[in-house]
Design a protein around this nucleic acid. Structure first.
Length: 555
RNA sequence: GCCCUCGUAGCUCAGUCGGAUAGAGCGACCGCCUCCUAAGCGGUAGGCCACAGGUUCGAUUCCUGUCGGGGGCACCA
């Protein structure tokens, strides 16, 4: 019996009690079944009786007793106790079957239907191609990609999308900076500095001999076009090396060129939330909770960035995405209200069709001293800097193991010198240890049994049942990570699982000591424990895969 | 000034759709390899879950306020 089965059994018990007129309550769709901290409280516990006590108008313990009587008859339930204020503590039969189920499911174990049928556009990073991905963008790359994987594992159809601005003032400054670098001039005011500028400039010049003899306008035009392309190639290559590939790279420029921006204005006008004032066309976003109305068409006839945002959102929706998820840094939190209001003004449901995740920023210290970052001074820490310091696995893991609600402080000195501080190694080591153990088993002639042939009832040690319960939780962890948009929950579960495995390994000998010499053949318990070990490996590998982190065979 | 967000162990962070004794890693201290990877395991020390009220049978979790950290206010992009 899996935790999901148990939850269903609890619901059935409530329903049975209602049917038998033992209490009168609305049968809940789902109930909370959790693993209690203390093993004295059984394999699983539920607070359902406490929740139902009020509607049933009976003391919690009475409700608990009624439910316990029904639950005891459920298949797979060994014992039910009423405890404390009215908790139901449940012990299961044959917990060991989880191991067989995990191994049989293999790489599909953990997949669930939490987000089944949803079509999600997940936009993240979206940094302008005027420089390399910096630390903040790196966090969204790691978290966004992991979230995409988790949502897919939960049944959603997901597109990873990267929106970029390849026209306008920023790009003009970028081109001017490239031009200055190529000519050996000083960085222009409001320009970009940093080593990459001269590299890109050289690439552009190399591709266009004689460019520097051209008049300024032609030079800037060339730097604008070739420079952006070159910069973007570099960004894509960096992301790819980081294990992140986008399905769609969306150019803001194309929105203007295709007429979609004008179409968006027209659409919003049709919906009736626009008005004219001071010579401009405004969108009345305050109708839907924004703090002020927004300008769609300026008095000079041009549109704003917000207008392009509107066109882009509508484009996503026209491509069939039911949910448009934006991952933005805390420095963009002001966008939440206006984007939500925008969706509402367009006639969409702002609760469903648009979702904005605000992630806190990453701050940097070096030996405890704050590191000031400045794009202009070229003192940014980039994705590549981080990867160079700690490698892809540790970089991704350290960025994805914390909630995006927390500002993350990374100490460069620590990252650079003590990479095994990182919990990723703790998790990866558990996987490598398992791989080694399985190699040994094979070397000593042990042929793994088919999961259903293994006597899992032999897995009775406390460390074994801890492991089984952790394995059984995995699908629910994936489901809740998807639902809560919180991929860090996967990482935390893996850390717990790895710890549980290390303790199991310490307490329970898997291969008989005399196996190597042939004095002591594998026995039934050997096969049962090997199955448990295999199951642990499956979950570690699947979980690390969801985070985009490798599961090494050796360390 | 207004708004958003965070405040949990020495450090970095989990947990909280209200539940039983608040956790991990790192750091500190003490132990454990004749035996499947010691990047491991066991133990000790370390917490007014920022503070004050409120709601509740029950609050670290929800609400209000205060204080502190971070971020944001545009016919910029």
């Amino acid at each position: 019996m899996t935790p999901a089965d148990l939850a269903a059994a609890v619901v059935a018990a409530v329903a049975a009690a209602v049917e038998g007129s033992e209490h009168a309550v609305a049968v809940p769709e789902t109930v909370t079944v959790e693993r209690p901290r203390s093993r004295e409280h059984g394999d699983y516990a539920t607070n359902v009786a406490l929740k139902l006590a009020k509607p049933a108008r009976r003391p919690p313990r009475d409700v608990a007793e009624i439910l316990a009587a029904h639950l005891r008859t459920a298949d797979g339930v060994a014992a039910v106790e009423v405890a404390g204020p009215g908790f139901l503590n449940i012990r299961l039969d044959a917990v060991g079957r989880i191991a067989a189920a995990v191994v049989e499911a293999g790489e599909t174990y953990g997949r669930n239907s939490e987000a089944s049928g949803e079509t999600i556009d997940l936009e993240f990073v979206s940094a302008n191609p005027t420089g390399p991905i910096h630390l903040g963008g790196t966090r969204w790359a790691a978290v966004g990609d992991a979230l995409a994987r988790v949502l897919q594992a939960s049944g959603a159809e997901v597109a990873r999308e990267y929106y970029f601005n390849d026209a306008g003032v920023q790009i003009d400054r970028f081109a001017a900076s490239l031009d200055a670098a190529a000519r050996g001039a000083e960085v222009p005011e409001d320009g970009y500095a940093g080593g990459y500028i001269s590299e890109i400039a050289q690439q552009v010049v190399a591709g266009r001999p004689g460019l520097l003899e051209e008049p300024e306008e032609k030079r800037l035009d060339a730097f604008r076009r070739d420079g952006v392309e070159s910069m973007f190639d570099s960004i894509k290559a960096d992301l790819h090396a980081f294990g992140v590939d986008f399905d769609v790279y969306f150019s803001e420029r194309t929105l203007h060129e295709s007429g979609q921006v004008d179409a968006a204005v027209a659409r919003l006008q049709e919906q009736g939330h626009t008005y004219s004032a001071d010579g401009a066309l405004w969108l009345r976003t305050t109708d839907f909770g924004d703090v002020k109305d927004r300008v769609l068409v300026k008095s000079d006839g041009t549109t704003t960035y917000f207008t392009a945002d509107a066109a882009y959102y509508l484009d996503k929706r026209s491509r069939g995405f039911d949910r448009c998820v934006y991952m933005l840094g805390a420095d963009h939190h002001g966008y939440v209200a206006r984007l939500k209001a925008l969706a509402a003004c367009a006639g969409d449901d702002p609760q469903r069709n648009i979702e904005i995740l605000i992630g806190q920023l990453v701050s940097l210290v070096r030996d405890g001293e704050p590191v000031r970052m400045s794009k202009r001074a070229g003192t940014v820490i980039t994705l590549n800097d981080l990867v160079d310091a700690v490698g892809v696995d540790a970089a991704r893991y350290s960025l994805v193991r914390s909630s995006i609600d927390s500002t993350l402080e990374l100490d460069l000195a620590v990252l650079a010198r003590q990479t095994n501080d990182n919990p990723v190694f703790y998790v990866q080591y558990a996987h490598a240890r398992i791989a080694s153990l399985l190699r040994n088993a094979a070397e000593f002639g042990v042929v793994l049994a088919a999961p259903h042939d293994v006597d899992v009832s032999l897995l009775t040690h406390d460390r074994e049942s801890d492991l089984l319960r952790s394995l059984g939780d995995f699908p629910r962890v994936v489901a809740s990570a998807a639902e809560l948009r919180a991929p860090h929950r996967i990482a935390r579960h893996l850390e717990e699982l790895a710890g549980t495995y290390h303790r199991f390994y310490d307490a329970c000998r898997v291969l008989p000591p005399g196996l190597k010499t042939g004095e002591e053949p594998a026995n039934e318990l050997t096969y049962a424990r090997l199955l448990l070990v295999q199951a642990t490996q499956v979950v570690l590998r699947n979980g690390l895969g969801l985070l985009g982190v490798s599961a090494p065979e050796r360390m």
